[in-house]
Every structure is written in structure tokens, then in C-alpha cells.
Design a protein around this nucleic acid. Structure first.
Lengths: 362, 362
DNA sequence: AATATCAGCTTAAACGTTTAAGTAGAATTG
DNA sequence: CAATTCTACTTAAACGTTTAAGCTGATATT
């Protein structure tokens, strides 16, 4: 069918319409300075030829590509899908398109990708994989490139805009929940301390413990890396403690580790929540499954992505204006499911009764 | 710090090096025709100025942007993360960057986005959300734009390259597994019949039933849309059938629906696998959880993404050559977990024991 | 020694837009 | 009616590359 594959250009339209390319450009961009009839004619011809402006050429001249990069740790990070959905919603609404750049939380790669953003033609970047004290990010921000940090942030980067969750509050309410249910020996599986989320979610929990006069015992606080395996290992370890030192509840600083913990408890034949309570963080999709039902701290990831993207575009599009800092801190909410007891009480009693039955009627 | 934000260009380098821009271009691209000393000098100056070629300008002249689009239904589709990981691996290795375009499986939007790909400057597209008989896709392929279909395909689109899973075989082995475990009344939760996956996974299962002489009963075959809620609804419905018509096993054409089914069985207090066996499809992350452990059909999503991306780039980069069709069909494997019995045996023994009990202690 | 070949450069056009500056003619003004 | 302002255009430069074609002087060929 198609012989020559060159697409229709501004010039093609201008020739057919007997006007200069400049005029066509004015028409296509709805700018004034063109007579009504001419405008109409050009529009019709453009329509007929199915003319579409070449965005690459346009980018070159006005230095805007309408391309936004999203730096993430991995597409498999369970936060990513919803975050990206929010970002995509906002971008689509304003005519931008989204590129994703997974970095695997590899510092080198992240630095390289950050440095490459500008000359690759991106208009701005949303980064969700920021580690604390990221020099390259620093440089990028200082150079005036539009950057929005989401989920995590870098305290050391003064001019970095962000929209994050209040991790301290989140950690606080998670821990408070466990304490109020009567737990005194509480295990904590930390996140990496090079991330703001890792730091804050721990800090909040420790605050709650302090407020309620509960001793935080060192052997119950374990390092984790936000991946499920580290949660599994941490629990396997904790549970080796002598019974009176072992936890009756565990707070994992994210859901992945909570799921790992859940699996470990399962393997150890420890009943959740009857024997050990568990609370996670992020309200990731898995936690909502009926057979998992992990109590967790929820945050609106879609909203977070949307706000970040929307404001990033604001920044990009308001050229001259003094750029004032943008910092949003969303509020966490506790989602109470089944891993912390209470609702399980009924079931627990039921089983006790069954056991009695068996003894009485063997 | 930074006053003027214009980045370093080829010209800046050429001026400092006292050569023409053309020479710098040759050097930067490692092309011949430049003397050793000159080359060295240019390289050093470029290095010193931190010169990076402007990819937008480059794209404009050689018509290649090194941008690949990936059309997906949603970032929340559980297949997406791994698929994208594979794609990203291949793209990164060859210097391309990935844009994702969620379409929500909305036909209009998908058509629009497909049509826009070329003038947005993409070099090619990987589509995983293709519905059957997609006119716009047809047009795009016929126009010679590099397209690779992954996961799903469109039978009606003759020149569409693809890398997919053998869905028929997958459906077959899933169903065969249930049959071999002794099930005769098997419920099926279908996928949408406008997708190749929906069609094939059903067809394969029906073949297996036919091969083993098992009647497929209409009320046990329910429509689904690949989302969890439809699996839930299907099971709720099926289980309302009179006991002798209700299924002892269920085959869901994807894991999302299997999870929905799992939840429904949970709510109905029907034990899996003791009372009803369940098999899913895709080997999605959730199914591997210890407390879920759904038996499912596995496919290597990362590999699938990688192959698709890799070959797409091959197509893009071999300009002239006759483009011959590329079609890969990966082999499915059954991942046996805990939702299909084997405990069937346990149940059998248990019932025998109960009967004995009743006789002895009436 | 005249000619061909070649390495090592430069020139200039091209890619498809946008936009500042220019122009011709019509309309408005004093 | 001459001067001014507008309107509706056009011209041409610019964005930052690539690349075909051209040029120059040196080396190789006959």
C-alpha cells in the first residue's frame, strides 16, 4: 500500500494551502494574526492530509519535549503501579507522556540516569527512589532542572520539592495500635536507613513506644531492606529468642517485609494473630487479600502520584516566576484487618470449643 | 550558581577546538576521517565541557529517537511489572528508553495512542493490551511502523510480530492437572473473548476435557473479565448450584480471577483444596505467597518482555532488509502449589476415618 | 613530472518546527 | 489627504545535530 513513508509536514500543508509555513504554524497553534478564511482553509487541508505536528521538531525549537521521566527502583516495587497510575492521570490530562527508568536502587545507575535526563530531552523528573545525600540529585536540582520527589525525599537537598507521606505519624499509629492491644514485647523490622521512609517509620514507632512507656529492646529491632526476604529472615531470627524475650507483636516498616514475616510465622507454625500480631506499612495490594489481611498503614498512592505530577508540570510551565518550594505531606491512616487480633477473638474461642468437643466426644 | 542555563553544544566544543562542528560530530560518533591529534583534542575538550549530544536534535535529523513505547492496559495489571522489567533490560542494554502508555483497555484511547505514536517520535511500540480486530493497530503495522505484540496478539493482523505464551497448551495442562486428580465437575472462569489469551486458555481447557471424556457443563462455564471481582462473582454464582452440579474444582483463566475465586470460597467457608480445588494462570506474584499458594500456569514474563524488546530493536535497526515475520511462542509450565489437593487424598482418608468413627461412637 | 588517490578537514544543506522582524496594502486618524 | 496604525501575511533565522559534497595539500602511481 504505502510506498513513501515520509509523513505529512507543515510544508506539505502550506504548499497546498498556498500560504507560508509560518502561517500554517500560527493556525495549528491557534495563534492570532491569520484571517478567518485562510485559517479555515488551512485547517481543512491539514485535516484532509491528516497532518500531525512533529513533536521532535517542535521540541527542538522550544526546548520542551512534553516528556516526563519517572525514576523508580523497580517496576516490581509494589508501590509503583498505583504511584504511576496517579502520575499518568495527571500527565495525560496535560498532554505529557511518561517514561519510566528503573534503577534497581543502584546508586551508580541512578546517578548516571539523573545526569542524562536533561540532554535526553526530558522536561522534568519524578523520582521515587531517592537515597539520602544524593549528590547527583543535588546538582540537578541546583541546576534548575524540574525535579519532584515522591514517596521518599532527601533531607540534605534543600530545594527539592516533594510529596510524601508523614512517615513518623504512620509509624506512630501503627505502633500505637499494637500497644493499645496490650502488646509489650514488640518486634520491629526496620527499613534501610539511607531512605527517608526507613528513618521516619522507625522514628515514629519509637516515639509511640516512648509515649506509652514501653521499653524498646535491642534484640527486637532488626534491620531490613524493604524486601520480603529480609522480613522473613528477621522473624526467623527473632523467634529464636527465649520465649519471654520473644515478641508478641511485630511491626514491619513496609508490607513486603510484613509479608515475609507472615510467611516466616506460617512456616514456624505460629498463629497470626493468636500468637503473634503483625502490622505492615503501605497498604499494598496483597495485604487486602482475604487470606492475608494484614493490618497496615495506608497512604493514597494514586493521589500522591497525581499531586507530584501535577505540580511538576506547574513548575515546568511557569517559566519566569520565582519558584517557591513545594512540599506536601499526606496523612497516613491505619487499615485494621486481621493480623492484630481482636476480630480473631471469636474464631479463637471457636477453636477452643472445638478442641473441648473433641476431648469430650472423641 | 548557574546563571545561563543553556547547555553545552557541539558548536561550543568546535569553537574551543578550532574545528568545524562537522568534525566534532565525526569524533563524537567515532567515525573515520579525523586525524588522531584532532580527535584527541576534541575528545578532551568535550570531556572538559561535559558536552552531551542533544538527543532531540539528533532525533530530528536521523529520524530515530531511541524511544520505545509500551502500550499496556494498566500499570496495576499484575503482569506488567515483570514484563516491563524484561523490556527495560533489553532496552537499556541497547541504549533505548521506555515510555509507558496505559490505556485502561479503552478501545478509543488505545486507538488514539496508537495513531499518535509515530508523530510523537517513538521508534517502535510494544503492545500488550491488544484486542482482537484492532483497526488502528492494523493500520499502524501496514504503514510499516515497528510493532511488537506481547502477551496477547491479534489473529486478524497478518503482519503483526509477537511473542506470546502458548495459551492452548497452558489451558490444557491446567485442566489436565485437575482431571488427573479425579475431578469430574470442573468450573471454568473464562477471560474476555476479545483477547487471544481469553480464547486460547479456554480452548485448551476444553480440549483437555474432551480428550479425557469429560463433559463440559454449561452452567459451570462462567464469563470473566480477568479482574478479580469477576472471579469472585463467578464462584459465588457457581456455588449456588445444587450440590451434585456444583464443581469440585475450578479453573480460572488468570490469577486475578483465581484470587477472586479464592476469596469467594473463603467467604463461603469452603475449604481449598479439601472441598474445592483451584488452579489459576500466569504465576503472578500473589500466588506464591505461603498463605495463598495457588497452583497456576507459569510463564516467563521477564523473558517474554526481553525477547519482544530485543527483537523490536532488531527490526528498527535493520533498515533495508526484508522484514520477515517474527513469532515466538513460549511454553507454559504448571506450578503445583497447594490449591489442588493431593490433599484430595487426605480428604478421602479423613472421610473414611470419620465414617469409622461414626460407626464406633454413634 | 604530471596525474591520481587519499587523508583530513570545511561548507552547507537538511531535519520540521517556531518566531521575531519585515512588508504591503487596507483602514483609521487628525 | 498625508500620516499613522492595523491586519494579514511572508521571510528568514534559529534550535543542535548529521551528512553529502567540496576542498586542499600531501603522498602514491605511472
Amino acid at each position: 500500500m504505502s510506498s513513501k513513508n515520509r509523513s505529512v509536514t507543515l510544508k506539505d500543508v502550506s504548499k497546498l494551502a498556498n500560504v507560508s509555513p509560518a502561517t500554517v504554524s500560527l493556525v495549528m497553534n491557534g495563534k492570532p494574526g491569520v484571517g478567518a478564511e485562510t485559517r479555515e482553509r488551512v485547517l481543512q487541508i491539514a485535516e484532509a492530509l491528516e497532518y500531525r505536528p512533529n513533536l521532535v521538531a517542535r521540541s527542538l525549537v522550544n526546548g520542551r519535549s512534553k516528556l516526563i521521566a519517572m525514576l523508580i527502583s523497580s517496576t516490581r516495587n509494589p508501590m509503583f503501579p498505583e504511584l504511576a497510575e496517579g502520575v499518568d492521570q495527571a500527565l495525560k490530562a496535560r498532554g505529557y507522556t511518561l517514561s519510566i527508568i528503573p534503577t534497581g536502587d543502584d546508586e551508580k545507575l541512578e546517578a548516571r540516569e539523573l545526569g542524562a535526563l536533561r540532554y535526553r530531552g526530558f522536561d522534568g523528573v519524578i523520582t521515587s527512589s531517592t537515597l539520602i545525600n544524593n549528590r547527583e540529585l543535588h546538582k540537578l536540582v541546583e541546576s534548575g532542572f524540574p525535579v519532584m520527589s515522591v514517596l521518599r525525599r532527601d533531607y540534605s537537598c534543600k530545594n527539592l520539592d516533594y510529596v510524601v507521606l508523614d512517615g513518623i505519624k504512620g509509624g506512630y499509629i501503627a505502633m500505637e495500635h499494637l500497644i493499645r492491644l496490650g502488646h509489650q514485647q514488640i518486634g520491629i523490622i526496620k527499613g534501610p536507613q539511607e531512605t527517608s521512609t526507613g528513618i521516619e517509620r522507625l522514628k515514629g514507632a519509637l516515639w509511640a513506644m516512648a509515649d506509652y512507656g514501653i521499653q524498646a529492646s535491642d534484640p527486637l529491632i532488626r534491620g531490613g531492606d524493604f524486601f520480603s526476604a529480609s522480613g522473613y529472615a528477621a522473624v526467623m531470627d527473632m523467634m529464636r529468642l527465649p520465649p519471654r524475650e520473644s515478641p508478641s507483636a511485630i511491626y514491619a516498616c513496609n508490607d513486603d517485609m510484613a509479608v515475609g514475616a507472615f510467611d516466616a510465622l506460617w512456616d514456624l507454625n505460629i498463629k497470626v494473630p493468636e500468637d503473634v500480631a503483625l502490622v505492615g506499612f503501605n497498604n499494598t495490594a496483597v495485604t487486602a487479600l482475604k487470606s492475608v489481611a494484614i493490618t497496615t498503614v495506608s497512604l493514597n498512592k494514586i493521589e500522591m502520584g497525581r499531586q507530584a505530577a501535577d505540580h511538576l508540570i506547574d513548575i515546568i510551565e511557569q517559566e519566569g516566576g520565582e519558584r517557591q518550594p513545594f512540599a506536601v505531606m499526606l496523612k497516613p491512616e491505619l487499615v485494621i484487618r486481621k493480623t492484630c487480633g481482636f476480630s480473631q477473638m471469636g474464631r479463637y474461642l471457636l477453636e477452643k470449643i472445638k478442641e473441648e468437643d473433641k476431648r469430650i466426644f472423641p
